[in-house]
Each structure stands twice: as structure tokens, then as C-alpha cells.
Design a protein around this nucleic acid. Structure first.
Lengths: 340, 340
DNA sequence: TTGAAAGCGTTACCAA
DNA sequence: TTGGTAACGCTTTCAA
């Protein structure tokens, strides 16, 4: 393990011209060799000399120059906004990234918090991505989409609870979650159902459609739905628990398992029996729910496998469709434990 | 709100030359106007004509061409690896990103899972970032650092539990966490202390230094430390609880609050009283811990404010220091509740 | 099998 | 005040 002293850390960045000079060939030859261009035959000794020269200089090609020349990039841009609300998302994004990398795309996340929709779209467009996949938590407007398309983006996706006009849509339909929870509660005889509405901006985006799904499911039966604003702190939960009996509810869908845990604790501390007096259902099916007493019923969400999605992105990049496509990614089902 | 029909979505991407043509000026003038170049005086009517032409065409400058011409970019690259183990990290990264954007850097996250250290460094170097900040969960070798420096990166940072030779270090010293927990337990009279060691690869990176810190603190007193491998599932926790009394421990530092909750539940189910027979301490000080019974003692971690860090990055980019700098970001302190 | 040269979109220098 | 032009690093066509 030498210190590679022949590679001075300072000084100009080596270019393909430097490699060519050192190898005693032209820049074209360097490009042919390093890109394994099959359309042209280069002698083995030349190949070796070029490779050695590149290694010796520590040459790394310049992506910007390359894509400038090529007229297009293979960059897929993933704007990031608020903290990802769900752990599921994290896993999903990583998978998607791997899937796209397998197809030889370069996936890049770009933080866009605090920019308005237009400025953000312009900032993304400067990078000339071939595709943009914008989570629901970042703003995406028809104008923004137009800017992106105009700057060469072949496909623009929204990835979230609801579609956006003009963009392809990868939908994680949160209404299913609310619907699932409420149907589960109705099957177990509950009719007066609260729905926790967190007030953190990052969660409102998901909370609204969950409530809508809950309402829809309730309307199909004879249940009543009561939205319950709740901050994720003990005071807020205690306050809600204190006025619980005035609400006349026999069940609550608590938005997710963390809020369910918070509320269940507060209810128990207020002397309200779970599930006897009030049933509680969360969502996410975290392991934590199984550790509570009573064990927490939950709504389990499953996302489709991701490689087909990466293939979809690839397809739409290669043959940009006229019509936005819509794909539903999420499936939800209730998991019954002890709290309902 | 017109549909902007004069901006066809298809067709070639408009360039500054198109803007110049439409405005009836030269490309140079377009550049001057759009970049608000103060070194040159342009008449107001010309300015207006250029601006209008740019808007009409939906012109967005091409970042790659710009940085090619400039010879450098203002891109700060944040490789991402495994899932971020701690929520704290998330918040931190967002803050850092905002801080750097305020200094006019473009922050870009680049998923690097599954690449070896050298390949990853080469992939990063292709983007010619001016700085790289690599979390501890992505591999960073001296060779990789050399590649990056050689490709023009002015500053390379590691951001994690321990320094890396040749890179600036933003250290979140996890030994403090273990040390804190063990000192807290010793102060409360415990002497035979288990330390939970999660086996998920993403957590091992943090678990090892936490154990080291625990050992160090124990050595300063007369306590004994016992590492306890544990998967994050109920079976593993139940198995550990089943043989608990054979271990002869009177306390356990459970790595973090989630593992603490898991283990505490298993211990209670096995009839072991907490904190009577065994004290339990977690880490992260999650709200969840306050909802458990007994309420969970924890180690609270605080990170320094982030803007000074962004300034630090900026300083090192502008005046690349010869010597790697080291900065400690983390402060830990025990929070006593009921489980210890 | 290899080389010369053009051109991608941008900015900065120098001249008008 | 504005325009022409060269150059950034790379790939690819055409010619040798």
C-alpha cells in the first residue's frame, strides 16, 4: 500500500487530454478505451497504456462535460421536502434508488424546503434531469411541470397521496388507510368513531385523505365520524382524554401507531378502558404496538415491489407518453390485536 | 392564468442563444443581464427586452454548462448510505442543507449503497463537488479521499462516530452516550451492567463506540460491563429475558429507547421487576419513553447548532487547510425517570 | 487503428 | 453600452 506520492493532491484536475498525452495517443482514443466503445477496435497494447495512464493520473471523467456533449443526462431528481413522515417511505426511496441505479440512472436527492413551487422547479430544471419524482410534500404545480418539461425532463412524477395535474402519478392512496381502519371498527360493532388529525404540516398531507377515507367508509354504514385535532405531545393528549366522555365516542382511529400509543396512554390514565369503553386503532403496524397492553390493533400498509416502478420510470423516459399515467402503489389491511 | 400556449412543451430546450436572438442582442448581453453582472452597464430597455425574451421562452440556464465554464461548481455532495439510524440525524441533515443553501451552495444527496469505497468515491468525483460530507455509514477510505481531492473537491468531511484519516471530521462521539448511561447507573448504585448490542449493520457502527464508552466509564469505577447481542424483535428479547437471571445483572443500557422498550417489556413479561431487580436506560429521549410504565430513563443527545457548521464548511472550501480539522458536535446527558 | 476537429451552453476577456 | 470570440472537458463523425 504505497502512499501514491506520484499523485499530487494539489494542482490542476487531470483531464482526458492529460491521459492522452501521457499515453501518447489522442483524446479520441482515450474516450474509446475508457468507455469501452464497441464500434471501434483499439489494439490491446494501446488499451493498456491508456488505462495505466488514467490510473496513474487518478483521472475521473467530468460528468457535466459528458452530459453537455451528449445533450442529455441520466439524472433522476428526487426533491426532498419535509421530514419523511413514515419509515415506509424511507425504505421505499432507497429501493427505488437502487432500482434506478440498476438501470444506469444517477439518482440525486435535492432539498427544496423553503422554495416556492416555481423557484424550486427552476432550480431543478437547471440540473437538466431526465426525470423528476417529487414526493407529495414538495410543491408541484402545472407551471412548474411545464418548466421542467421545457428544460428537457422526459417524465415528471408525483409520489404521494394524490395526483397532480400534468404529472404522472405514483399514488399512495391514504384514503384506503382511513377506510380500512373504520371498516374494521364497524365490523366490531363500533359506530361513533373519532379520527385523530395531527397538526404538524408534514402530516396534514396524509391526515386529510385518511379522514376522507374514514368518512367514506362510515357513510357506507351507519357510523359517525368525529375529527380530533391532536398535537404529538402529552399535554394535548391529556386534554383530549379529559373531555373524552363528553365526545360520546366508542372508538378512535389514531392516525398512526405513535399517535395511538400517545392517546391510549392518556385514555388509560384518565380511567377510560381500552378496548372496553373505547377501541383504538393505529396505523403502520410498528413493532412497538405489539409491546403495548392491550396490544395495539393497526392498519398495515404494503407498497408494491419497486423494481417494476423503476422499469416504469425508464419506459416513460424512453417513450414519453402523451397522457399522464397513474399507478396505485399502496395496499392497506387491518391487523386485529387487542385494542379493538 | 393562461395556459402559456406560446411555450410548446416539446421541441428543443431553449438556450441563451435563443434568448439573445429573440431579444435582438448578443449572448454575452444575455449573460450579463440574467446574472446581474455589476461590472458592466446595460441600458434598462435592453435589460427588459432580455428578461421578457427569457420568460417567454421559459429559459432556464444549464448548470452543467455553467460550471464547466466556471471551472468549479458550488455543489456539496452528501452521500447517503443505510437508513439513517436516528431521527436526530434527519433533522441535522436538513438543517445543514438549509445552512449551506443560505451560503449559496447546492446540496445534493447521492445514494451510494452497495458500492465499495473506491467506486463510490469515483462516482462522487464525476460530479466534481466542491465539498463532500460523508456520513459514517458510507465507506470513506484514504484512497477515496485522494480521488476526491484530486478531482477538485476542496474539502472532504466525515460525519459520524469517529474520524477518518485525511478527512475533516464532524464527530458525533457515541462513547459519550455509553459513558453517560453507565455513570448514571453507577451513581444509582448499580455495578453489574449489561449493554445491548443491536446486530443490524446500520446500528453496529454506533453500538461499538457506545460500548467502548460504557467500558471506559465502568473502568473508572468498579462496575462490570456485559455486552448483550439483541435483534430488534420479540423473540430475541424474550430469549434474552428468559436467561436474564443467569446473567446476574442489576442494570442494562439498552442502546436506545426502542430497544429499551422492547427489552423492558420482555423483562416485565418474564417477571423481572424494573427498576427493582434491574434498572433500564435507553437513549434518544423519545417521547415514547415517557409513556411507558415505569417511565423510561434515557440519555438525551444534543447537537450543536448547524449554521456555524455550514460556515465551517464554507471556510474550508475557500481556504482549504493543510491539516484536517476535528469538531465535536454531540453532547449527551442522562435523563432520570423511573426505570433506573 | 488512430487522429483532427466540431460542437454541446455558458461566461469573460477584449475590442468596438 | 454592446458584440465577437475563445475556452471549459468531453464524445463522435469523418478522414487518414
Amino acid at each position: 500500500m504505497s502512499q501514491l506520492p506520484e499523485q499530487p493532491i494539489e494542482g490542476p484536475v487531470p483531464t482526458s487530454a492529460d491521459v492522452a498525452r501521457l499515453a501518447g495517443v489522442s483524446r479520441a482514443t482515450v474516450s474509446y478505451v475508457l468507455n469501452n466503445n464497441a464500434a471501434v477496435r483499439i489494439s490491446d497494447p494501446t488499451r493498456r497504456r491508456v488505462r495505466e495512464a488514467a490510473t496513474e493520473l487518478g483521472y475521473v471523467p467530468h460528468a457535466a462535460a459528458r452530459s453537455l456533449r451528449a445533450g442529455h443526462s441520466r439524472m433522476v431528481l428526487l426533491p426532498t421536502g419535509n421530514f419523511p413522515p413514515a419509515p415506509l417511505h424511507h425504505h421505499f426511496l432507497h429501493e427505488l434508488e437502487s432500482g434506478l441505479r440498476r438501470l444506469d440512472y444517477t439518482v440525486v436527492q435535492y432539498g427544496s424546503l423553503g422554495l416556492d413551487a416555481e423557484d424550486a422547479a427552476r432550480a431543478w430544471a437547471e440540473l437538466r434531469p431526465v426525470a423528476v419524482i417529487a414526493p407529495g410534500s414538495v410543491p408541484l404545480t402545472p407551471q412548474g411541470i411545464a418548466v421542467l418539461r421545457r428544460s428537457g425532463a422526459k417524465a415528471v412524477f408525483t409520489l404521494g397521496p394524490e395526483p397532480v395535474a400534468g404529472a404522472h402519478a405514483l399514488i399512495m392512496d391514504q384514503r384506503q388507510v382511513g377506510g380500512c381502519a373504520v371498516r374494521h371498527l364497524m365490523e366490531r360493532g363500533r359506530r361513533r368513531i373519532g379520527v385523530v388529525m395531527p397538526e404538524e404540516p408534514a402530516l396534514v398531507l396524509f391526515a386529510e385523505p385518511r379522514l376522507a377515507g374514514a368518512r367514506q367508509a362510515a357513510a357506507a354504514g351507519t357510523a359517525r365520524i368525529e375529527p380530533l385535532p391532536l398535537h404529538h405531545d402529552e399535554e394535548s393528549a391529556a386534554a383530549l382524554a379529559a373531555r373524552w366522555r363528553t365526545l360520546g365516542l366508542d372508538a378512535v382511529f389514531a392516525y398512526d401507531d405513535l399517535h395511538a400509543m400517545l392517546l391510549m396512554r392518556a385514555l388509560q390514565d384518565a380511567g377510560i378502558e381500552v378496548p372496553g369503553e373505547t377501541a383504538v386503532v393505529g396505523a403502520d403496524d410498528l413493532m412497538l404496538g405489539r409491546l403495548l397492553r392491550p396490544r395495539l390493533s393497526s392498519v398495515r400498509m404494503e407498497l408494491d415491489t419497486v423494481q417494476p416502478l423503476a422499469d416504469l420510470v425508464d419506459r416513460l423516459v424512453r417513450r414519453p407518453g402523451k397522457e399522464p399515467e397513474r399507478h396505485d402503489l399502496l395496499r392497506a389491511r387491518a391487523v386485529h390485536r387487542e385494542s379493538s
